[in-house]
Simulated assay, not measured.
Amino acid sequence: MNHHYTYFLILACSLAGPLALSFDKKVAFNKKWKWLFPAIVLPAILYIAWDVFFTAKNVWSFNEAYISGIKIINLPIEEVLFFFVVPYCCVFIYECVRCYFPDRTNIKIANNILQILAVFLLVTGLIFYHKYYTSSAFILCALFIVMLYGFNFFFKDFNAAYFLISYSIILVPFLLVNGFLTAIPVVLYNDAENLAIKIYTIPVEDIFYGMLLVLMNIALYEKLRNQSSPKSINIS
């Protein structure tokens, strides 16, 4: 096996299951691509810019032995694809939760959990402001949660209960994929820029870095989906 395709292979394996199951009659995820793909684009652009900056600042780097060598600015093409493949898989899981567990509409507790989490992340991010990865991942995730509630009129279709249930499921494959990427290692982290608290080989910041990405994708996906439908689930 050519090790230079390792990152590509990890992404392909991650996408294979959700893509094949997208044509399941109950979920019919393929019929929702018209909302999904536009929802993925803006977060991907923001994350790619974030990634370019952090790679330049040596917050993380990429092992040349396990990437193809094709780069956009300073990012491997695989890393750029990550911000399209992972959101696809995550929103697919979210949509499965919505379809198979349609009664999860009581979201008061879920709202409280997200709001408390935002306070914790904001305070922690400010305390560790000098660590690039910790402060940015925690503070930006906190601020986006604040935005969800502060601009309720725009994000009225976001359902915190569906999100939290989905993200608790998403964390299993998300950590598995990141586990491969950091254990091989394909991605190398500079621990001076994070808390150096690891889940196996994964910085704990990855949980909230991923949470922000999924939150953005789901919030925009629901916004686009419900623009064409009079039914919506209010966040409050």
Rank of each mutant, 00 (worst) to 15 (best):
146 V>T: 10
162 Y>T: 05
164 L>S: 03
167 Y>G: 00
161 A>W: 00
153 F>Y: 09
162 Y>R: 05
157 D>T: 12
162 Y>I: 00
163 F>K: 03
137 A>D: 07
154 F>L: 14
150 G>P: 07
158 F>M: 10
150 G>A: 07
155 F>R: 12
138 F>T: 03
137 A>C: 11
140 L>R: 11
136 S>L: 12
164 L>I: 06
169 I>H: 02
153 F>E: 12
162 Y>H: 04
158 F>L: 10
150 G>C: 05
140 L>A: 13
159 N>G: 04
163 F>C: 02
136 S>P: 01
147 M>C: 14
162 Y>G: 01
150 G>H: 08
139 I>R: 07
154 F>W: 14
149 Y>A: 05
161 A>H: 05
146 V>L: 11
157 D>Q: 13
161 A>R: 13
157 D>V: 04
136 S>A: 15
154 F>V: 15
161 A>Q: 10
136 S>E: 10
147 M>V: 15
162 Y>P: 00
161 A>L: 09
158 F>K: 10
159 N>E: 04
137 A>I: 04
142 A>K: 02
153 F>C: 07
153 F>A: 14
148 L>R: 05
165 I>N: 06
157 D>K: 12
156 K>I: 01
156 K>S: 05
147 M>G: 12
137 A>E: 01
148 L>Q: 07
151 F>S: 15
148 L>C: 07
160 A>S: 11
142 A>R: 02
151 F>P: 05
157 D>M: 05
153 F>V: 12
155 F>S: 09
165 I>T: 13
167 Y>Q: 04
157 D>W: 03
151 F>R: 15
146 V>W: 12
138 F>C: 07
164 L>Y: 01
148 L>P: 03
167 Y>F: 09
154 F>Y: 15
136 S>Q: 13
163 F>M: 01
146 V>S: 09
156 K>W: 00
153 F>Q: 12
